[in-house]
Design a protein around this nucleic acid. Structure first.
Length: 871
RNA sequence: GCCCGAGUGGCGGAAUGGUAGACGCAAGCGACUCAAACUCGCUCGGAGCAAUCCAUGCCGGUUCGAGUCCGGCCUCGGGCACCA
């Protein structure tokens, strides 16, 4: 078990040459890193240049929330982006690699409530701190383009676009439910609702309706879905998640009749994706927020009590779905559209969502597990619509839900009994029948809902509209933008300070000049992050975007961030770019803003835990644990691969790592071993190993000229290893497999170290090493590049090319399998023909022994790869 | 609950359907050293004297050949629309 990271244990790596060293006789990151950072600054190496003569490359990491401290996840994210940026720059691209801050959001308000102070001061202070922590990493960022989304200059442009989108009909208002804390009298975010209670007050959270602003993302549902096909450089899993999220379905839309219904509710609209089961439902159910439920609860206390119970639950789908399924029989009956004499009981159920479909369902227990659980719980009948081929067994407690393409035997449906067809076929036939008889219509439906952007909070982009008694809702005049957040606010009371700020809230109507009231809701922070990448192309333009700059720099060629953003952020951005295009703020080519996407894994670390007298977990910092024990000798329990979190005390601070080992070590480690898309476990021993390796590379470079004449006959072998490394490192970077690039560099370093080739050849190999390692450990690369007489900055040297002639091997070692298991091998010329190989294989000692004079059933020769003898 | 992933030595991982374990960590042995650290060299999935056998989360299937493809599970992680 690795011990804790002991900073005092940092190995001392020295060159053997001169013990009475000058400053340059050992690898000393504290000396070389600031030196090269200053050199890059002086050369303006990372300024993005709009150069029409060069192809451009835009690489972007998801910008951070300014929490105040960078963590290893940031280091991993930005290092990956930096590798790509530096590599592409070496390949001759004009690179844009910017950085900014996703600066609005709840934590700033929470800090103001808990510690006093102003969200603005807290946020800008955090930005300054984090930037100071990031600078020593040596990232090739063009800091001249930096901005924060809370800069009025940024959010004012966002307000201008909001007004344009409002006028284009892409924005509207409607009622929607929020989590309401009845004690604090405030709206809560889903994460502030813990087991159905407010996180501060502990009060039971209620669902409450408010009128809120929405973006019409559903207008683009089909377009957002079909365009996913074109996102070929996105991870397949993200494309699949987005497709499922949009959730296009084709189904049957129909109406149940409602007997003895309250006035206006004689018909109950339903949508079902399974029309083939229309003879299988044994109940219908509506959401507690359904208008019919609301009508019923007015004069039925039992219904009112049940609906209240359903509403006493947060708004999150996960909470609703995971909760115990509850229902109440309204006593009303609904009638089947195809046969009005067939009546079903109408229930109110807590798992029916008002937001999805019509807020009402048919319950077909035999073929839906949730409906079956509900039916069993409340003693409702179960009717088998179809059965598996060759079985007549009725459904028990497991619903029968075959693939739609599977053939089943329909026993109770609109066609003849015992018809054996697929569910898809039955659905198609039923749909056609319902349409023909006027019982219902085929309808395409999406799961995607419109994007609610209203937040009842201060620290966000103000929604630039005014409510006027005479004119209604009126957008602010563009010349009055930005609508700035007032600074004189306090957070001593719960709720939104904008709501109780008289001089800010009260204003004149831009249309009639009469008395108006500002909208006090601010925008969801996902709006801020839906276009920042476009703003980076012209961060100080007087309009949201600058057409010439957009035309040159868009789209983002490589976007890198966490998988947790696979759906919301990326889908909202895709929509927002379409809305920007529709309002003239983006060119058509930018409606899909991210050409390629890469989703990285987390950085994890072991947790060290003991238990107190009462058996409760006590966590310990890595620096307090040595060889699995605390200072007093108590053994700790080690939990591997846990997400870093302050409460578990398993956080490693990048600042400490950089201070003690240097940025290059942090960068090298974070790229080593684990593939970028997977989680990486930070270990102290791994960090030390990274540091040792960089020292070894430095020493190899320092020793090139001091190890005698060497043996020139070994030069060719070393140069071959160099070209192999060029090919492998390049392939690793291109394929986002930086761990393989790292492995290839280890292999090259080992080859140089073990070789007795001439100093000339070693110099060549080490200069290539400098270039190949530069994207990952740029400071060390510059240092050895200059030591080895490379010209200029390695950051500005062109990427080396592998000579294909140096990559071919003339002879291959061919494994020989017998019945698929390796038993022997032979060395043959690379392009020897099959028959020749077969002849040699059959003469092989092991093969002869196994065959014992017989003939093989089959000999499979895969040229250059393998031979399999089947006996 | 629903959607999406991931599971390979003591550890991180490598492997166009073709030699399972590249590269590295840890460990062990040796060299250097008064000694240690650093550095360098060697060994290193398990069982067995060996021939061999067993091994890629579990169970089945396709194939001359499966870590890789298909079906069914298990465990862990991400998302579920107001965390960012």
């Amino acid at each position: 078990m690795p011990g804790a990271l002991d900073l005092a244990r940092r190995p001392c790596i020295t060159a053997p040459a001169d013990p009475n060293e000058g400053p340059m006789s050992r690898y000393d990151p504290a000396d070389i890193e600031p030196k090269w950072q200053a050199a890059w600054d002086a050369a303006e190496s990372f300024r993005a240049r709009h150069d029409p003569a060069k192809p451009k490359y835009y690489v972007l990491e998801m910008f951070p929330y300014p929490s105040g401290r960078i963590h290893m996840g940031h280091v991993r994210n930005y290092t990956m982006g930096d590798v790509v940026a530096r590599y592409k720059s070496s390949c001759g691209f004009s690179v844009l690699h910017p950085m900014g801050w996703d600066a609005f959001g709840m934590p700033a308000e929470n800090a103001a409530m808990e510690r006093g102070g102003h969200p603005k001061d807290w946020t800008y202070g955090n930005i300054a701190d984090m930037k100071a922590q990031m600078k020593p990493l040596g990232l090739s960022i063009d800091w001249s383009r930096e901005f924060a989304t809370c800069d009025p200059e940024y959010y004012g442009q966002q307000q201008a676009m909001f007004i344009d989108m409002l006028e284009a009909g892409l924005v509207y208002r409607k009622a929607a439910v929020v989590n309401w804390d009845p004690v604090d009298m405030t709206v809560l975010a889903n994460e502030q609702v813990i087991e159905g209670k407010g996180w501060r007050s502990g009060a039971e959270v209620e669902r409450r309706e408010l009128t809120q602003w929405f973006f019409k993302i559903t207008d683009y549902a089909d377009e957002l879905l079909s365009a996913i096909d074109g996102l070929e450089a996105w991870p397949e899993k993200v494309r699949l998640m987005q497709r499922n999220w949009i959730g296009k379905s084709k189904g049957l839309s129909f109406e149940f009749g409602v007997k003895n219904a309250p006035a206006g509710f004689e018909k109950l609209p339903i949508y079902t994706t399974r029309p083939d089961t229309m003879w299988g439902p044994t109940f219908a159910a509506i959401a507690a927020d359904h208008p019919l439920a609301k009508a019923l609860e007015k004069d039925n206390p039992e219904v009112a009590a049940f609906c209240a119970k359903c509403r006493a639950m947060g708004t999150s789908e996960a909470a609703i779905e995971a909760a115990e399924k509850l229902g109440l029989d309204t006593g009303l009956k609904v009638t089947h559209p195809a046969d009005p004499s067939l009546e079903l009981p109408l229930w109110i159920a807590n798992f029916v969502l008002m937001d999805y479909g019509t807020g009402a369902i048919i319950g077909c227990p035999a073929h839906d597990q949730r409906d079956l659980d509900f039916a069993r719980k409340y003693g409702l009948p179960v009717i088998d619509v179809f059965k598996p081929l060759g079985s007549d067994e009725a459904v028990g407690n497991t619903a029968f839900v075959p693939q739609k393409t599977e053939k089943v035997r329909y026993v109770h449906w609109h066609g003849p009994a015992d018809t054996e067809i697929t569910c898809q076929e039955a659905m198609d036939r039923t749909l056609a029948l319902y349409e023909k008889n006027g019982w219902g219509t085929a309808q395409v439906q999406y799961r995607l809902r419109d994007w609610g952007i209203s937040r009842q909070r201060y620290w966000g982009c103000p929604i630039p509209v005014i409510h006027c008694e005479k004119c209604g809702v009126v957008p602010e005049k563009k010349e009055n933008l930005p609508v700035r957040l007032p600074d004189d606010v306090s957070f001593d009371l719960p709720g939104n300070p904008l709501d109780r700020h008289p001089t800010w809230r009260d204003c004149t109507c831009p249309s009639c000049g009469g008395k108006g009231r500002r909208e006090t809701d601010t925008m969801d922070t996902f709006v801020d992050s839906s276009w920042y990448f476009a703003r980076f192309t012209a961060p100080h333009a007087a309009t949201p975007t600058d057409p010439a700059e957009c035309d040159y720099w868009m789209n983002v060629d490589q976007y890198i961030g966490g998988i947790e953003h696979a759906i919301l952020h990326l889908l909202y951005s895709r929509f927002f770019c379409r809305a920007m295009k529709a309002t003239g703020h983006l060119p058509a080519k930018a409606i899909e803003p991210f050409n390629a996407l890469f989703t990285q894994g987390m950085v994890t670390h072991e947790i060290y835990m003991t238990r107190d007298a009462r058996g409760r977990a006590v966590y310990h910092l890595p620096e307090d644990v040595t060889d699995g024990k605390l200072a007093d000798g108590t053994a700790v329990e080690v939990i591997p691969s846990a997400k870093m979190s302050k409460s578990k005390k398993n956080v490693v601070d990048p600042v400490d790592i950089v201070k003690n080992f240097g940025a290059d070590t942090a960068r090298w480690f974070i790229l080593s071993d684990s593939p970028p898309e997977r989680d990486v476990e930070w270990t102290a021993s791994g960090a030390e190993a990274a540091y040792k390796f960089l020292g070894r590379v430095w020493r190899l470079a320092a020793e090139v000229d001091s190890r005698g004449a060497g043996d020139a006959s070994q030069d060719q072998a070393l140069l071959k290893a160099m070209h192999r490394a060029i090919a492998d490192v390049t392939a690793g970077i291109e394929g986002f497999a930086f761990n393989k690039s790292v492995a290839a560099l280890y292999t090259l370093a080992n080859a140089v170290q073990r070789s007795d080739a001439s100093a000339t050849a070693k110099g060549t190999a080490m200069r290539a090493t400098a270039q190949l390692i530069a994207p990952m450990t740029p400071h060390l690369a510059e240092e050895i590049w200059s030591m080895l007489g490379g010209s200029g900055l390695v950051a500005e040297a062109p990427w080396p090319k592998a000579d294909p002639a140096m990559l071919v091997e003339d002879e291959v070692l061919l494994p020989i399998q017998i019945n698929g298991k390796k038993r022997s091998e032979i060395a043959v010329p690379k392009d020897m023909d099959k028959a020749e190989v077969e002849k040699l294989v059959l003469a092989d000692e092991t093969v002869v022994k196994v065959l014992a004079g017989g003939t093989p059933k089959k000999v499979i020769v895969v040229p250059g790869r393998i031979v399999n003898v089947v006996v």
